[in-house]
Amino acid sequence: MYAFELERPKTLDAAKAALAGDEAQALGGGQTLIPTLKARLASPAKLVSLAAVEGMSGVKAEGDQLVIGGATTHAIVAAEAALTYPGLADLASHIGDPAVRNRGTIGGSLANNDPSACYPAAVLASGATIVTDRRQIAADAFFDGMFTTVLDEGEIITEVRFPVPQAGAYAKFVQPASRFALTGVFVARFSEGVRVAVTGASEEGVFRWTEAETALSGNFAPEAVDGLSVSPDGMIGDLHGTPAYRANLVKVMTKRAVAAAS
């Protein structure tokens, strides 16, 4: 690692001030960023840890929404969202391994937007709202391609607001070495229709499979997508799976997610 200064502000205002400089970067749980720093793929002059910022961690129900603080760890979401949004808690309980879940945060995962991360699928399928220190961003407008979001420099995810669906579930085909999704699909059924979000498959990062949404809105059953197919164009190809393999997994994992949610 190159040398940097590490700050641990206690308030959101102090965190904003600390991030105002050019070379400053926010630190969530560090489960991706610290290995990245070790590989010298990032070299911030200053890291601003958000872990100690008051009011940034926790899970609470507000009306028909589940509100999760940006610095909330996966382990806390797994434990505290289990009754209100079991599909989301299940997703959180299978990210990485137990020690990673005790450190990694929802805000860090979303800001990083790894194309194989689990949380982006839940956020996009749920139609969640990402709240930052300066605005509210709809999930449909938040993700902007692999490892890219619409967040500005120094913008802090303070909370994520999830509308709780009538039924929702995530099915992940695990890449066993990294425990990321080789392909993962989150389905969420709302009274106004079904949303389907896919992670791990596309070179553009998380995306909605709209044909499946239409089919499942008419019939929320695994066989509803039997007649659909996904093009391998633009799918990720690597030593773990070809684009055609991933395209097929999109359909398979959608069916499994629907079965789990039904």
Partner: peptide, 29 residues
């Protein structure tokens, strides 16, 4: 491994298992 894969460095911080190679000392203040 020093890449937070292997778990040889697991310790407890405030009662929770964490990988001590994926946490800064200052974060344990």
């Amino acid at each position: 491994c020093d890449t937070s894969q292997c778990g040889a460095c697991v310790v407890h911080v405030n009662g929770e298992a964490v990988k001590a190679c994926a946490m800064f000392a200052l974060e344990a203040e």
